[in-house]
């Protein structure tokens, strides 16, 4: 899927900077100011987006450490009994989530890209075979995979309206299941 924020945001910034903002009425100070703020906010988003996941993991880890420090202290405070129980439950949940947080999104994207390239190269190489049965099997696997893959991709961009309002595409959320 190419339409992701790391690709989209720089295009938005360039359009706003090069085309839209120079055309905004200089006398409209409110529009001028908000236009600049939009560009600034988009720059911030573009810069921070790759770090968002790592940031959240670090933050969760730091709060787990804080909770671990607080728990024995809270145990000595009767008035904090209910709050401590809630904290303990939240910390258990947080540890479980953090344990399940694996690689970062850029690594996931890079692995996808490597695998796509490897599959593509195999498809090209297989096309040279004289073994019709083997070729058919390769083609069938690729076609079956493409059907599910394209349904996800079409659902991802459905809001753009390329397939019209009656496309019948499912909500992408329902397709993001392993």
């Amino acid at each position: 899927m190419e339409l992701r924020p790391s690709f989209q945001i720089p295009a938005l910034i360039k359009s706003l900077t090069d085309v839209v903002l120079p055309a905004v009425d200089p006398a409209n100070k409110l529009a001028q100011e908000q236009g600049q703020l939009i560009v600034g906010m988009l720059h911030l988003m573009a810069q921070r987006l790759p770090l968002q996941y790592r940031y959240d993991c670090v933050e969760l880890d730091s709060y787990l450490k804080l909770a671990a420090q607080l728990a024995p202290q809270a145990a000595r405070i009767p008035e904090a009994g209910a709050a401590l129980a809630a904290l303990t439950a939240a910390a258990d949940d947080g540890r479980s989530v953090l344990a399940g947080a694996g690689v970062e999104p850029p690594a996931l994207e890079a692995a996808n890209q490597r695998l796509r390239a490897a599959v593509g190269a195999l498809v090209t190489a297989a096309a040279a075979t004289a073994d019709d049965a083997a070729l058919r099997a390769v083609n069938t696997a690729v076609m079956d995979h493409a059907q599910a893959q394209l349904l996800r991709e079409r659902a991802w961009v459905a809001l753009q309206g390329w397939e019209g309002p009656a496309s019948g595409l499912p909500a992408v959320e329902t397709l993001l299941v392993r």
Partner: peptide, 17 residues
């Protein structure tokens, strides 16, 4: 192309054949 698309590979092989 940024991401490869196996369907494109398969199609080009067919077109050439």
């Amino acid at each position: 192309a940024h991401q490869d698309v196996p369907l494109m590979r398969l199609t080009m092989a067919w077109l050439r054949r």
